[in-house]
Design a binder for these strands. Structure first.
Lengths: 336, 336
DNA sequence: CAATTTTGCTTAATCGATTAAACTCTCAAA
DNA sequence: TTTGAGAGTTTAATCGATTAAGCAAAATTG
């Protein structure tokens, strides 16, 4: 790789010290009383040699890297990919670069990623925390590393976060189904201690109770570790029994997809034989024969707010901001 | 942010020079004849203080960053998100971190991203080159920066690349439709000088010619700049006229989605009234009422090969490897 | 026992940019 | 003529890790 032009090359060519070059190129020309002639010469030479500051050297000296570490569950998942894109845009606009990693809901992968990013001196983190990573996050907070959690948070940890109001989201969705005349409603969720999942389940349960429903209804929880095929089999098993089931609510987009796959396999027609509410959205929701009613997350706000809050943290602001954004219930054919 | 432990902290505590610490922690203990006692002390102290090398400092000194710059068209697009995930996995396995950016098929964004990544001293690039970026890529090649193109390449540029055999892909798809009895087949593509698009169109045309078909058939090309809505309107306009159209081939997954949206709007039934072949895949293809026949790219191979080739380049290998991977025609309901 | 080799460690330069502090002029005021 | 104040620039330390070169003491050799 051809050697890049350094500040030394410029100073040599102009016949001044590197200090002067640095002052001029960083706009400290006035403060440092650099003569107009020399300043212009430096600028011209920098241009001529196509000088680009070495960010690594600058980072070492300045102690910041203008880099944000983004850790999501899986960048290939529609929801996280969309989010990553929005975060990327917001970060780039502010002069930051994003390095990313997928933790696969695995605490060990999460730990490795966090450490790798710390070694690389990221200025801050945006993290979708996996199950079992409470201590990792607590460690970051204790170390004073700027961090914003997204999509989920730990109630006993005083961190910034930007999340959906998950309780409201599934409460609304369940109420909507009840209003559509459903009584036996099952929620399909992940087995998790994470707050977002707990809230989604709680929202469902409270909505059911609010209408004095709950007898035959329930929550199915499957482990994150299940493959798509395993999830489908599990859901299939459960659905088969409930011949008098009126509706299903799925707690994530992957669960939604697994679910409608099952229903297709069992030949159950949506919305005639069963009504469906999905979570998060995705192309498949739109192109399904019966476009799905789903709980939409305000992705743009989730992404931009998380970046904005993180940047203010990195700039030294100390305020803990915790946002629970309002969900949007997108009513379509699958609950008609 | 709490100050991190440096090599100096260890050397101070053990009472030796920083050099010795560096030698030991980098495994040059034998070569440098460090006494076993001191070596152990250094290791213990490093452990005790939880020392993590500052990668920025190391990068500056070593002249590499163990970072790969990944530039795709849009990380939110299913195809690129999948690819990004595979690249991430392969890179992490080899000890590299990925920084990414979306160029939106825009040469200016691409230029900005390339320069940002160069400033950050990435060790190499994996790029999905946008229209009009030939010179940017040529510049990188001339500068000796390790680079692997992916999904597309420039025929007059001697770079490594990993692509689909696009000609074969659409040739196969078109032949498949012909075998299914279609005669009037239209391809919906993007207006582009990029080779992957040209090859997809060429494959279609040659397949048509191979069966002496071509009279009423043709290619629709729409600009990348079209929004989803604009694309749909444009496609709708064209489809309406061809009441005797037998089949449509779409050249990308986004075009496929726009296309089936139109067909739905026009109330045209797939595959009874028209047959459809999509490109790239995506959830929507699977969950559509008539699961789409589509040209599947060997994503895993695309991703891992691009990383492997890039790493060998970064390690000094000079061989130019150009791969045109075999497509997989996934035949399903939409062409039955 | 002097000469040489080996052992075990330190010094100091380096990567490229930043920046506090010092230094040398010139010009003006006392 | 001395003093002081700017103006304009350089010196040198620094960020943290790496590594070639050097040095002193111990061990080995002839």
């Amino acid at each position: 790789m051809a050697k890049r032009v350094s500040i030394k090359d410029i100073s040599d060519k102009v016949g001044v010290s590197t200090a002067l070059v640095s002052y001029v190129l960083n706009g400290h020309e006035k403060k440092m009383r650099v003569s107009a002639l020399i300043a212009q010469k430096i600028r011209d030479t920098a241009e001529e040699l196509n000088y680009k500051p070495n960010q690594i050297a600058r980072s070492l000296r300045r102690g910041n890297t203008k880099t944000i570490g983004l850790i999501v569950a899986d960048i290939a998942n529609h929801f996280f990919a969309q989010l990553a894109r929005i975060i990327e845009n917001a970060a780039v606009k502010k002069g930051y670069t994003v390095i990313f990693g997928s933790a696969d809901e695995d605490e060990y992968k999460s730990d490795t990623l966090i450490n790798t990013f710390l070694d690389r001196q990221v200025d801050g983190f945006i993290i979708v925390p996996s199950e079992g990573t409470r201590d990792q996050i607590a460690y970051l907070v204790k170390s004073g590393v700027p961090i914003v959690l997204i999509d989920r948070y730990f109630p006993d940890l005083n961190t910034c976060y930007v999340c959906l109001d998950n309780f409201q989201a599934s409460f609304d969705a369940t109420r909507h189904l009840i209003n559509q005349g459903c009584k036996n409603i099952t929620m399909v969720a992940y087995e998790s201690t994470l707050i977002h999942m707990a809230d989604r389940i709680r929202g469902y349960k409270e909505a059911m109770l609010s209408d004095n429903l709950n007898g035959d209804s329930g929550v199915i929880e499957l482990p994150y570790s299940y493959s798509k095929k395993e999830s489908e089999l599990y859901i299939e098993e459960t659905i088969k029994d409930f011949s008098n089931l009126h509706a299903l609510i799925f707690a994530t987009n992957s669960l939604t997809l697994a679910g409608i796959n099952c229903l297709n396999k069992l030949g159950i027609k949506i919305p005639d034989q069963i009504k469906i509410v999905g979570f998060d959205g995705g192309d498949a929701f739109d192109y399904f024969y019966s476009p799905l009613t789903f709980i939409e997350q305000p992705l743009l706000e989730l992404g931009t707010q998380s970046v904005n809050i993180l940047i203010s943290l990195m700039e030294g602001v100390n305020e803990i901001i915790q946002l629970n954004l309002k969900p949007i219930l997108n009513v379509r054919n699958s609950t008609m």
